[in-house]
């Protein structure tokens, strides 16, 4: 495992779901984690304690020496939000493909038909994408899309504005306009735990302004959406994410994906990637 891969923070469990000791995998290595006397811990296969951070309702660790703190999401900390633990869904796909799919808005009408998108509203308008060097993150802003049911709390079709952010190679955060609170963003994240290069545990998490919808409905909505993606993800070919630009002509919708792949390649993040020599 290269330092470019090892020196990141990875999600390995949902804090509210960790009681005794349990075993899982991270980057192809067995690890154990648990909670003793109110303290979370993670150990590698040899029994060595790994660093831990408790954030966004999840437990994070790193098999390497991360040279910076786990990212923060200041918007998710504003008071009045519901923090929604969605559990995990296991998917046979590259962790990078799981993130890339989350960044792709063009699949909404076809995969989340009549919920997050609907024909004939399939057009993705111009939006801005950049790799923000100063924070080392990928951002897409001013993304607009027509949605029949943008959230559990949405009553009818609305044009939703999105921002996408990739703060770490296997994590993505999306900000979307919040129907009950114009001017604020709902926060929906995808934290991907790479079990191996072609198998991941995906932990969605949300911080929403919604005082009315029962928690079980918020969780169901998110799980329904993510399970619609799962069958697509498990059938993608090639299994690993190619980091070298192919022959295909990029469309507007692909711009985020192109920036993401370029950023991964530049930072040497190759776990779950297919790197073909030029």
């Amino acid at each position: 495992m290269t330092p470019e891969v090892a020196n990141h923070w990875y999600p390995v469990g949902m804090c509210s779901g960790i009681h005794g000791a349990q075993a899982t995998q991270l980057l192809g290595q067995s690890i154990t984690l648990g909670k003793t006397g109110g303290q979370f811990w993670v150990r590698d296969a040899g029994g060595k304690a790994l660093p831990v951070i408790e954030r966004f309702g999840h437990l994070w660790t790193s098999p390497g020496q991360p040279n910076r703190d786990l990212f923060t999401i200041p918007e998710a900390e504003t008071p009045g939000r519901r923090l929604v633990d969605c559990g995990s869904v296991r998917v046979k796909c590259s962790p990078l493909r799981a993130v890339e799919n989350f960044l792709d808005i063009a699949h909404f009408p076809f995969v989340h038909t009549d919920i997050l998108g609907a024909e004939p509203h399939t057009e993705v308008e111009r939006y801005d994408v950049d790799i923000r060097e100063e924070v080392d993150e990928v951002w897409a802003t001013k993304v607009k899309f027509f949605q029949p049911q943008a959230a559990k709390s949405a009553e009818g079709g609305i044009t939703t504005e999105y921002m996408y952010r990739v703060p770490a190679p296997t994590c993505a955060v999306l900000y979307k306009t919040c129907p009950p609170r114009p001017g604020e963003w709902d926060v929906i994240t995808l934290f991907v735990q790479p079990l191996t290069e072609e198998l991941c545990e995906v932990w969605p998490w949300m911080a929403l302004y919604d005082d009315d919808t029962p928690m079980a409905d918020l969780v169901s909505f998110q799980q329904m959406i993510f399970m619609q993606d799962r069958s697509i993800l498990e059938n993608q070919i090639p299994r690993k994410l190619p980091l070298d630009p192919g022959m295909e002509v990029p469309t507007q919708a692909d711009l985020t994906s192109i920036a993401y792949r370029r950023w991964l390649k530049r930072t040497g993040y190759t776990y779950g990637a297919q790197v073909v020599a030029a």
């Binding site: 949902m14 509210s16 779901g17 633990d85 969605c86 559990g87 995990s88 029962p214 928690m215 079980a216 409905d217 969780v219 169901s220 799980q223």
Partner: peptide, 11 residues
Amino acid sequence: VKAVNFHPARD
């Protein structure tokens, strides 16, 4: 329909 949080809450 009453949604029950089967996963992850085991309700």
